[in-house]
Design a protein around this nucleic acid. Sequence first.
RNA 1: GCGGGCGUAGCUCAAUGGUAGAGCGUCAGCCUUCCAAGCUGAAUGUUGAGGGUUCGAGUCCCUUCGCCCGCUCCA
Length: 508
Amino acid sequence: MSESTQTYSMHELVSLCKRRGFIYPASEIYGGINGFWDYGPLGTALKNNLRDLWWRDMVQRPPLGPDGNEVSIVGLDSAIIQNAKVWEASGHVGGFNDPMVDCRETKARYRADHLMCLGLKGDRSGQIYAYVDGDEDSLAAAQKKLEKYVKKALSPDDVDTCQLTALSAEELAVTVGPDTKNAGTLTEPRQFNLMFDTTTGAIRNEDSKVYLRPETAQGIFLNFNNVVDTMRVKVPFGIAQIGKAFRNEVTPRNFIFRSREFEQMEIEWFCHEDDAEKWFEFWCDVRSSWWQSIGLTGANIMMRKHDDDELAHYAKEGCGTFDIEYRFPFTHPGFGELEGVAHRGNYDLSRHQEFSKKKLAYFDQAKNERYLPHVIEPSAGLSRGTLALLCEAYTPDPDRASKVYMAFHPKIAPIQAAVFPLVGKDGMPEIAHQLWSELRERWDVVTDVKQSIGKRYARMDEAGCPFCFTIDGDTASDQAVTVRHRDTQAQERIALDQVATFMSEKVG
RNA sequence: GCGGGCGUAGCUCAAUGGUAGAGCGUCAGCCUUCCAAGCUGAAUGUUGAGGGUUCGAGUCCCUUCGCCCGCUCCA
């Protein structure tokens, strides 16, 4: 859908994805498993096309830099499981374990570290009032409730404040939640483990505990020295990686948008601190136009600067973070994140240097200076990108037989062309088979002899195949075929020996 | 994790506590010279799973799993 208005619901798309072999629920015959999905034949092709295009456009032939010179990016494929200390250094072991507190009465949920408590100074037996840190209204409400409880106005000197996490179980039992009047409705802070863990080796204990990576980025930082030492790269340069990452999301939701196993396409761009701003702008532009080049255009895609209060623990305040967001049906009229371009400063390298005790500084010959490079990180979701492509392509059309077609950009379509004999006789299947054999050397092409031509066109509409080449009774004599265009259903006739040229022009 | 809704063929959905069905899709055959045509036929279900009540459960009860919506979360 290219308009800004929502014209279909998510379950229609989910249904088509199942019906046409794009995406299936994982472990379906065993009742499924929450937060995991399997890619079917067409979904795999679509995702692979997106992945390969990214690799080609970012690693094999990246765009020219802001000064007009070629940029240097090398590829990497690091292990999903690394030394557990990696995630302490990265901040994930701490940052990923947010204790949560639920209110049994109001059903509200709070981050325990966001709750503060108010109590009468010196009073160990009376009620305690929780409020949300930084929320003036919440604080005022707590103060008011406390004053009502002790039946007098209180000055700041009369009260004590502390973190909710510092309370004992007894104190928690007499604590009144931010949005209720009764004490003892808050649950104990509960830990949500956002990283999956497992163990290595034969002995299973705390020392053998390891984590499945929650992002591919850290594998790049771990290999920064290796790449510098072996690949003759000079700052500025980038290291790119595509791979699976795992997050034990509290609530997997919205099809493959928030799943527990997903794929990322990340670049860590290493540069001098003085140039970070310039490169940040550069990558925002490059990544924004890249998504547009594969068909995500118009009002459904936008760039958004993060508000300061939602900056990640690694985000450098200077440049902040930009999101490239897509208007998914389930976020409509809002947007959901496709990619974040973050200025990570030298946070990661300095943390790994500190935790590993290995020097990670880069020596710059030209500047005769040794420093930890700053990092600009364009981090894209391959799974989310695939979902955005599916959402963008889904086009209801009550006037055509399939009632819907998938308007994929020809570059990423899972089936790029189909070759059909108009009917299965008079030598047409033989010509079709010959043309199909030639085209499949270079493109994803299918052929089909069975059933009526209209039915075969309709199937290709749902699969999102942009072009069908049909051999008819005249082809043998005039050496021409009919091209049927998916989006317009228009037909034109071109020479049989020009089909490959047509594909080169339209698909690339 | 909480609240609400839902779960029946590949998909969309029917079936008063009493024989599990339809449409579409899929497949096969015939037909067919440009849009799911037509005709004939076929396959596919432990009604998400497990227990219970009942002479009898898709239907009622309990548990559990999954999906959707809201809260929460989204480093």
